[in-house]
Design a protein around this nucleic acid. Structure first.
Length: 594
RNA sequence: GGCCCUAUAGCUCAGCUGGAUAGAGCACCGGUUUUCUAAACCGUAGGUCUCAGGUUCGAGUCCUGAUGGGGCUACCA
């Protein structure tokens, strides 16, 4: 790529002209702002002390050096300390000619040797997935795909939180009020059925608390003494004692939930290489506590609880094992971290988990480091912000959640309405239309969630639904469909894809399009390095916009210069391919027509 | 109390390791269809980048402090 050549030669120039020693990796060049002539810009200000010359003079000398030494540099101009370099048209034409028909252009095919495990989704099995889970799932899936496209060996896993007091709450309510109701008898999706009883428990629990408070108890007392919660805790004890009936109910209800989750995951288009279940892992980590005590990393308090003192690292003291010998969250996570490392031998382990657990993961990584785990440095918490509604935070127990299944269905329905409204249904069979509604509705949803910087909280307004115009998934899908249409027509007319470089002229927008296409590999790398699908979203949107501009300025099929036409066809081909492959990484499908 | 995140146009968001006149979309107003798909394109308008200092050739970006919003931290996961 040209950037590398330029950096290399700039480093050489600095060394030969001014005896400045700098590695080409540290040379920074950027794309020239559109208001100025040139393709790449090198800013000389920071080198002036060493060159002992003025900015214009320094830039001028560097420009002359590059012009003489680098074939690809056609000309240059200097404005203050900015050296603008113009790359020869031949370079751009060669680039498009070489890569226009390369599938998965920009993907790293040579393995980096890095093994990465991405844990995401990690749902509780007491209620259906909601909007927040959608963000998690899409992020985890997309990040795994992007890392894979960057040449890493990526695996994914889902740590299912299938035990604990919250599950017992749903179980209890079902045992009390379910009358044997099942997903089949009621034709209700399994996870929704279980969620219904979770809400029912909470209602009952709240009512009991209210009554106890009226009877003179404090709110704290009422919360602890309500019959429901006592019964749920009893159920948890029975579960831990492996009581047959309890375990059977637990298995049955979790089974319903898994069926429901599978359907939702399928709809979302996400998969996992491995499932971990907390019921199998929740006892892990106790040996590590022993190990830590022996190593002096942990210490025991008089009551028997085991702690770690992280005050020197700017954190607090943290409990790692209760006085009664039972685990806390971090105990299990230590054990699970070891387990994952044993299973996958990964040098990078990514946890896609909400930002309310920032502190927890800081602690986890710190403990792993202090224990001398070889994989500790590779632990990375991909923290994402909450999805908020206009009314504020979602509360699953209060029913103010946006359900994942409902939302997806609503998006697809919206896509259908809009498609019909625009009269785009002509000539397509019903099956294809249904596929299209799915692609567009889910594409809108996915793009909407992925384009936002993960660490920022985001606002989702279900009433306004999601736009299909502007910076959206459907706009980009539409761009793809239009290109495909052009390519279909071109193929029907047997148009040539070969051009002679001496017979073509690059217009401004054609060149802009080539430069944007050329930039894809580095954007993909950025998205990988930053674990941010948003980088890719913004890039593809930018590409689609540049293409649209090109589309409106030039016609392809009616171009009479066959060389120029071939060039344009190549531009179309590569644009469509990059849109397709990028969207694939984001988990979004692209239609051939829409 | 301590720690973390965040603040950019009326709204939702970009702005990469500091670079030239801070960008999109939506909404608003105006224009474009004998031209390969108008879910499109073009144009107008909209900004003290929360505030105050500092670092330097140069700050939306880095540092310090203040304020607003969110989160975590007191044996839940």
């Amino acid at each position: 790529m040209i950037e590398q050549i330029l950096k290399n030669k700039i480093a050489l120039a600095l060394q030969q002209l001014y005896q400045i020693e700098i590695s080409d990796a540290n040379v920074v060049i950027e794309k020239t702002t559109s208001d100025f002539e040139g393709d790449f810009t090198f800013v000389v200000f920071s080198y002036l002390k060493q060159t002992k010359k003025g900015p214009e003079q320094t830039a001028q000398q560097l420009g002359e050096f590059l012009l003489a030494q680098v074939d690809e540099v056609a000309s240059f101009n200097v404005i203050k300390g900015f050296l603008n370099l113009v790359v020869a048209q031949q370079y751009w034409l060669n680039f498009i000619n070489q890569h226009h028909h390369q599938p998965n252009f920009g993907f790293v095919t040579k393995p980096t040797g890095q093994k990465i495990l991405v844990e995401y989704s990690s749902p509780n099995t007491n209620k259906p997935l909601h909007l927040g889970h959608i963000r998690n799932n899409l992020l985890g899936y997309a990040v795994a795909q992007i890392l894979s496209a960057n040449g890493h060996q990526v695996s994914t896993c889902n740590l299912v939180n299938d035990r604990g007091i919250h599950i017992c709450k749903s179980m209890l309510a079902w045992m009390q009020h379910g009358n044997g109701e099942t997903p089949e008898t009621n034709n209700l999706k399994g996870d929704h059925l279980v969620g219904k009883y979770y809400v029912l428990f909470d209602k009952q629990f709240k009512a009991e608390q209210k009554q106890l408070i009226e009877e003179g108890l404090t709110p704290e007392q009422a919360e602890k003494q309500a019959p429901s919660i006592i019964a749920a805790q009893e159920l948890l004890r029975k579960w831990e004692a492996n009581d047959t009936e309890t375990v059977n109910v637990w298995k049955t209800m979790n089974g319903w939930v898994y069926q429901g989750f599978d359907a939702s995951y399928k709809m979302l288009g996400i998969t996992f290489d491995k499932y971990y279940y907390e019921s199998n892992t929740y006892l892990l980590g106790k040996e590590i506590v022993e190990e830590g005590l022996a190593k002096g990393v942990f210490f025991k308090k008089p009551d028997g609880g085991v702690w770690i003192d992280l005050t020197e690292d700017g954190l607090d003291q943290k409990l790692v094992l209760r006085a009664d010998g039972t685990s806390v969250y971090i105990t299990q996570d230590l054990g699970t971290a070891d387990l994952k490392y044993a299973d996958f031998d990964c040098n990078k382990s990514i946890y896609v988990v909400g930002n309310e657990q920032d502190y927890h993961f800081k602690v986890l990584q710190l403990i792993l480091k202090k224990l001398g785990r070889p994989y500790a440095d590779g632990v990375y918490h991909l923290s994402y912000g909450m999805v908020e509604l206009p009314e504020g935070k979602m509360k699953s127990r209060e029913g103010t959640v946006v359900d994942a299944d409902d939302l997806m269905a609503a998006m697809i329905e919206q896509a259908e309405e809009t498609t019909i409204e625009l009269g785009k249904t002509e000539g397509l069979p019903a099956d294809d239309l249904n596929d299209l509604y799915n692609m567009v509705g889910l594409g809108a949803l996915k793009y909407f969630m992925l384009k936002v910087d993960p660490k920022k909280k985001m606002l989702f307004n279900p009433k306004e639904s999601i736009d299909f115009q502007g910076n959206t998934g459907p706009f980009i899908q539409y761009t793809h469909a239009r290109i495909k249409s052009v390519l279909r027509n071109a193929s029907a007319a047997n148009l040539s894809l070969q051009f002679d470089a001496t017979e073509v002229n690059l217009s401004k927008v054609e060149k802009e399009l080539i430069i944007t296409l050329h930039d894809f590999p580095s954007q993909l790398a950025d998205a990988g390095n930053q674990y941010s699908p948003g980088v890719l979203c913004n890039y593809v949107y930018d590409l689609a916009k540049v293409y649209s501009h090109f589309y409106h300025e030039h016609s392809v099929l009616k171009e009479t210069n066959t060389h120029q036409q071939a060039l344009r066809l190549q531009l179309c081909t590569l644009t469509a391919e990059i849109i397709r492959s990028s969207f694939q990484l984001l988990g979004i499908k692209v239609p051939e027509r829409m």
